[in-house]
Nucleic acid binder design. Sequence first.
DNA 1: ACAACCAGTTGCTTATTGCAATCAGATATA
DNA 2: TATATCTGATTGCAATAAGCAACTGGTTGT
Lengths: 171, 171
Amino acid sequence: MDIERRSGCPINLTMEVLGDRWSLIVIRDIMFGNHRHFRDLLTHSVEGIASNVLAARLKRLVSLGLLARQDDPSHSQKGIYSLTEPTIQLLPVLAMIGAWGCRYLPVSEELGIRARLLEDGGAPMWERFMDELRLIHIEDPVGGAYGRHVSSVLVDLTAAYQQMQDRASDA
Amino acid sequence: MDIERRSGCPINLTMEVLGDRWSLIVIRDIMFGNHRHFRDLLTHSVEGIASNVLAARLKRLVSLGLLARQDDPSHSQKGIYSLTEPTIQLLPVLAMIGAWGCRYLPVSEELGIRARLLEDGGAPMWERFMDELRLIHIEDPVGGAYGRHVSSVLVDLTAAYQQMQDRASDA
DNA sequence: ACAACCAGTTGCTTATTGCAATCAGATATA
DNA sequence: TATATCTGATTGCAATAAGCAACTGGTTGT
């Protein structure tokens, strides 16, 4: 799969690769939700992605080298989708996008908490998280998919998210 | 104009607002090229935006508060499009997107130089540029559109861009 | 008066998205 | 062994968005 290459401008090329409604959402769910299987991504999608769109995005992102797919040893049909170095390096961009969205868009409390924590953590937290992502996605993608490693940042973010969600369902 | 609001996630909302092939391109041309009129944006577009798409994007971005439009006193039909505080605050995001694109996508020399300068300048340069953008777009949009103020960052970026372009046309 | 310029609009074709239903193979359960 | 469920998708169809070229109604400078 090739990109269109309307121009060689870095912003344009990035938008050609990621400038649609779903690609970054998929990357976000893999990165922050550790959703590593097709079904996982499909059924836990907050935004409700359709299966054909998800299939198309995964195929495209893999062919661009932004995701990697390996067979799941526990099931001959299952594939495990993992981040690659380029997508891991996207973390600071996602953190800044999240921070910007929190400031200027009608973000909900539960879903904004992770972005705020990530913003407060700053570059040191990002570096730590990126190292943990390398372990979970590149060094041991299978173990990473099945939670056999602990990412302290992911644990913190997920705990805060759960806490906000619980509080919201109480009310 | 309203956004869809599939979810309250900051990344999702940002993609709903800016996640298409043209919105960020238009903002980039206004920010870095100081293209402030419809015709300016249309004819100097490196990627070749169509007039109807440009019109739709400008209308949408204005209605979302991401751009402002004021009448040009020199011509009763002309409008001047200006950045607003939210779009000025997008600069760090654009800088990081540009840096990421330079590392992982087939960026051309001429068009990548601005992103590299902006990355090297870091947060201090971004703050300086954002202050200059506030003058050119918010405090005095008309004067800013007609180059009656000098943005040192914009001058540096444009000079480097021109130099690369000249070098490329020599070869 | 007239040519050039202004910001868009219109009509048309093609490409992309979204939705619901469906598919075949693999696995777990009775 | 039969069957139900789970797997990652695919198909067909309708709606939306993008891309292209021609055009509109008005303004400005000569």
